[in-house]
Simulated assay, not measured.
Amino acid sequence: MFSHGGAIGLTLTVSQGDISFNYYFTVFVEYAPIDPPAEGSNPYITKVFDYMPAVGQFTNTLPLYEEGDTQETMNQKVLDAIGNNKRGMITLGGFGGYVTVGFDHTIQNVEGLRDFRVLGNAFYANANPNPDAPEGGSCEPGVIMVAYDPDNLGPDNIQWYEIQGSAHADPTKEPWYEMAKVNGNDVNIYFDYRITYYRPDSEPASRDEWDTYIKWEDNQGNSGYKVKNQYHSQPYYPLWAGNTLTFTGTCLPQNAIDESGSGTYFVLYKFRYGYADNEINSYDDSSIDISWAVDASGNSVNLPGVDYIKIYTGVNQENGWLGECSTEIMGVEDLHLLKEEIHTRR
């Protein structure tokens, strides 16, 4: 019996006395087909299970935190904003900030087609000083995780898988990779990244304290500060959280470049596919194929569908006056219920 589908490695060991032989092999496990959604199923988010943004300039405003709010009331505010095709907006803050959502049905994995779309607020630059630059503008990629729950165990009690976006497969193939490397960006991908943010003792008393506002440390030996800017004066640390916040996940290459050379025009370049808030909503690459899901070892898994989706900010980077790279979410759509047919990339 296996707890999940996909390619699973097994070892048969035969031994007698001092003699031992190991035989390694792989089995491929598939789930049984699922029934189509019932008539009248909702194509959009109907549940929000958890919401915890990281530090960010829109944290505590998208959605608005009010004194006395709890985790449960913040979850409800997120549902009110992005559930049921409301198309409001929430922020996930800096790296690791996340939201976990659900539906009133299982989104089917249809062979050869993309299955759902994550709505964000990505857009392209209108006046990039670099005339030869690839597509980019405000692309703040969120990593997407999916889970299938045929026994209704709930999102905290089941196996999660990550959507293998383009940088997961090979970051060097991103069209802006060499530009970012020359710019001094960290262009590595870290599959077991961990970052901790520390609640500040107080809000900055003057502008001199903006650059050392909220401290962070990661498991790569790096540390720094999330800075405050003149455009957003509210606290950037989620006010209903504890004194430290730790997030883990896949940290993507830094995709932002100051193309002006003077700090006035930052361009956040688009990853090829597979992430949230990375592509204009009306374009194909804002949509996801469930078949891109992989396990922790990078092996493909054969999910018949997904019941839950988790999205977290995938880049740790400050971008001058623009502030941190923070994924924003407006909703999730079941493409099959909406009768949209978008072929997969691979």
Rank of each mutant, 00 (worst) to 15 (best):
K228L: 11
E209K: 02
H232W: 15
N219Q: 07
K215E: 14
A169R: 13
Q164D: 11
D201S: 15
T250N: 02
N183L: 09
S202A: 10
P238E: 05
P235V: 01
A169H: 11
P235K: 00
E209Y: 11
D186Y: 02
S166T: 14
A167V: 08
P171I: 01
I163P: 10
A169V: 14
I189V: 10
D170A: 00
R194M: 12
A167H: 04
C251E: 01
A205H: 05
K173R: 04
T250P: 01
W176A: 03
E203T: 12
E217P: 06
H232M: 14
R194W: 04
A169M: 12
R207A: 15
D201N: 10
S166R: 02
Y231T: 03
G221L: 10
K226E: 08
Y237F: 03
K226Y: 12
N183E: 11
I163S: 01
E209I: 12
V182H: 02
W240C: 02
P175L: 09
N222H: 14
Y198H: 08
K173G: 03
K228W: 08
N243V: 00
A205W: 07
V187Q: 08
Q234W: 13
D186N: 08
T172L: 00
I214E: 07
G249T: 06
A180E: 13
Y190A: 06
P200T: 14
L239W: 04
P171K: 04
N243C: 01
Q230G: 14
N185K: 06
I195F: 13
N183Q: 13
K181I: 00
S223C: 13
D186Q: 05
W240N: 09
Y213I: 13
G249A: 06
R207W: 11
M179E: 07
W216Q: 10
D186G: 07
Y177H: 06
T172I: 02
E162N: 05
T244P: 11
P175A: 10
I195A: 09
G165K: 03
T172G: 05
D218I: 09
Q230T: 15
N188D: 01
Y213G: 15
K226S: 10
W210N: 11
P238W: 04
P200K: 15
F191I: 02
Q220M: 09
A167K: 04
E178G: 03
Y197G: 07
H168C: 01
A241H: 13
P200Y: 14
G221V: 14
S206F: 07
